[in-house]
Structures are given as C-alpha cells and as structure tokens.
Design a protein around this nucleic acid. Structure first.
Lengths: 141, 141
DNA sequence: TCTAAACTTGACTATTTTACTATGGTATAT
DNA sequence: ATATACCATAGTAAAATAGTCAAGTTTAGA
C-alpha cells in the first residue's frame, strides 16, 4: 500500500506555490528545479489541477500558475481527487467477484476496508495546504 | 493508493479461520473455496504467516492451519507486517533524493506523509481479528 | 503399508501500474 | 519576433502485482 508520486508531487508543487503569499504566478520550471520533479511530468499533473479549478494559469513569459483559492481552503482531498489519487482498499465493490457480490455472502472483511477508507479520507479532509506552509520560508531552498 | 491483495487475502483467510472457535485446523483448500482465492497463492501467503508465528500448521490429511493466539490478540498490523503489506507514503526516507535529503532542505510535505503513516497504522493497531468475526456464522457460505 | 490429502519451497511469468519521456503544438509578455 | 510559458496526446521502460508451475515432504487413515 503506497502513495503514488502523482498525488505526492501534486501536493508538493502546490505547497511550493502556497509558500509565496503574493499573487504572482509561479512557473513550473521553478517548481521543477526546487522540488526535483520532471518538468514534463509536472505539466501533466497541473493540467489535471487546472481542469479541477485548483489552480489557474497565466500564459506567456513570466507566466505560471496561481492557486484559485487561499491555501486554507484547499484540502488535500481536493488535490488528490483532482489528480485521481484515490484510495482503493477493496476490489469487490463494483466487480462481482466470488465470495463478495450482491448476493447472500458478503466478504468477511468488507466492513473493515470500508472503515479504513473512511479513516484515511478523514485525514485528507482535515488537512489543507496552509497546514503545510506554517513556518513559511524557513527551509526554503 | 491501494491495498494489495496479499494483505487483503491474508486478513480474509485468517478471519475465515477465526470464525470457527474450535481448535481444529482449517485446510487451505477450504479457505480457497470459500473465499475464492487461488490455493497456490494462499500457500505462499500462509508460508509467511507461519514464519511470523501468526499461524501454526498441522500436516497430513485432515490437517491445515490454526491460529497461534486467540483472535483478539491478533492485530491487523501483525498480519500486515507478516506478509510485508506495509504503508509507504514517502520515498525520500532512505534514498537521498533531490530536495529531500539529510541536508538543509527537507521536502515541504515530509511531515504530512509521516502523519499519514501514523494515522493509518493507528487504525491497524486498533483492529484485531475478533473485531471481524462478531456475529459469527451469520453470513457463512 | 500404501496412498491420497495436505503442507512446503523456490522459481518462473503474464499482466498491470507507475513514472515518467517524446513530440508537436498554442498563447503571450517583452 | 521570439523566447518562455502552457497544452495535449502518445508511447515506453521499469517495477510491482498477482498469480502459476514444478517438485517435493509429511502423515492420517483405509
């Protein structure tokens, strides 16, 4: 069970932007250099973030990306759902696998995985971007 | 972020055994049929569970596996660590990747992932096998 | 005693997912 | 005008997942 880079990079990049409280757009090139993430990969991720109104873009030179809302209004869960980093604890929800379909027998552990999903999502709903940038600039590269 | 079948199957299989409170060993063949898990795959998983003293085996015909402890003493976290289903939220712990090594710059989101790991592990430490088999036999296949 | 049922072990493999890279654009500040 | 930035789609190498295959050993019971 591991977190993929897509979700992790998305949060890292947005936290990087959030560290500046001014309204200037931040270029992907800068984020790429600071966070050590491939520029082309970042572009992919930001395309999704933009589609989901987490960020807005400013084109042209000196352009880049800005957050659409203030950091305390952007929850980790918002970011994860935008880049389709979702939690999957159980395969027997949609598919009707043997031992766990709509019929009589429900797999013994089904409830456990549902609870786990809730438990994890609760965490992502509680945390927002501003939680990450407390003590701004202290570790800036 | 998803749970692999190895961990899920291990818990399912052990819960299946725990449903019987008697001391008779349960054969992998029976578990395989009831839970719809490949017998050969189960053998692999139980080899690990045995090495970690979660179960003990009884050889010969009418043999099978028994729990070494009572269900309420077997935590989900014990099972997961036995089959090496571990939580990995961050890649920059051991490897010294750019942007997050031992030096000055610590990746902005590092603490978040550590907290997430703690949050998830807390759940696995709280839950044990007996939590799963409450209302025993009601949905038995 | 014999044999089938059960456990044991290690190697192997197909499929899927991840984590990107490559290519070829379009838009715009300077 | 042009360099710098965003935008979009396709491809792909490596790793992880989810098993299978083969070749045993052990032992209860006929």
């Amino acid at each position: 069970m591991k977190l993929s880079t897509k979700g992790r990079y998305a949060v890292m990049a947005l936290a990087d932007i959030a560290k500046f409280d001014d309204n200037n757009p931040v270029s992907l090139r800068d984020i790429s250099l600071r966070q050590g993430i491939s520029l082309l990969y970042l572009e992919q991720i930001f395309s999704m973030l933009k589609k989901n109104q987490i960020v807005e873009s400013v084109r042209g030179s000196n352009g880049g990306y800005k957050l659409t809302k203030s950091p305390d209004q952007i929850k980790i869960s918002n970011i994860f759902s935008a880049v389709q980093e979702n939690i999957k604890t159980v395969g027997c929800k949609k598919e009707s696998k043997k031992g766990c379909n709509g019929k009589s027998a429900k797999c013994i552990t089904h409830n456990l995985w549902d609870e786990l999903e809730l438990h994890i999502n609760e965490f992502f709903n509680k945390k927002n971007l501003s939680d990450l940038v407390k003590g701004k600039n202290e570790n800036r590269v």
